[in-house]
Simulated assay, not measured.
Amino acid sequence: MKKILILITAMFLFGCNEKIYTVEDFKNNKELLDEYRKKCKNGEIDGDSLNCQNSHKAMIGLSRPTNTGKWTD
């Protein structure tokens, strides 16, 4: 019985995690990027989370010049 309870608890805890988006996901979807930057800034999401880190990296990547000397979006 204990094993079943532990299994159910583990499934609940790991099943409720938020989807992790990659830097490329954020670069390709401005609305998603804006949504997560807002959530990270207002403390709705922990700033150390992967989504906050990846959204920050995407913003930095989008504001840097490319190797052709042109700025990205």
Rank of each mutant, 00 (worst) to 15 (best):
T9K: 03
D34N: 15
M1P: 05
T68Q: 14
K57P: 06
G43Y: 00
T68S: 15
K70S: 11
L50T: 11
I8N: 01
I60A: 08
D34Y: 13
Y21L: 07
K30C: 09
N51Q: 04
N67W: 12
C16H: 04
M59L: 15
L7H: 00
N28G: 13
N42A: 02
L62R: 06
F12Y: 05
D25M: 03
L13N: 00
I20G: 05
N28W: 04
L13I: 14
L7V: 00
E35N: 12
I4G: 07
T9P: 00
K70A: 14
A10D: 00
K38P: 10
E31N: 13
A58D: 03
A10S: 02
K57R: 13
H56Y: 12
S55H: 07
I45K: 06
E24W: 08
M59R: 15
L7E: 02
S55N: 09
L32G: 02
I4Q: 12
N54V: 02
Y21S: 08
G15N: 01
S49F: 03
K38T: 14
K39R: 10
I45S: 01
A10Q: 00
E44A: 11
I4M: 09
L50I: 15
E44W: 05
G61C: 06
H56E: 12
I6R: 01
T22P: 08
K38Y: 13
E18C: 01
I45W: 02
C16L: 08
I60W: 03
I45L: 12
L33D: 03
G47V: 10
F14Y: 08
W71E: 12
A58R: 04
I60Y: 07
I60R: 03
I8V: 04
I4F: 06
D34A: 15
D34I: 14
G61R: 10
N17L: 10
S49K: 01
K2Q: 05
D48S: 14
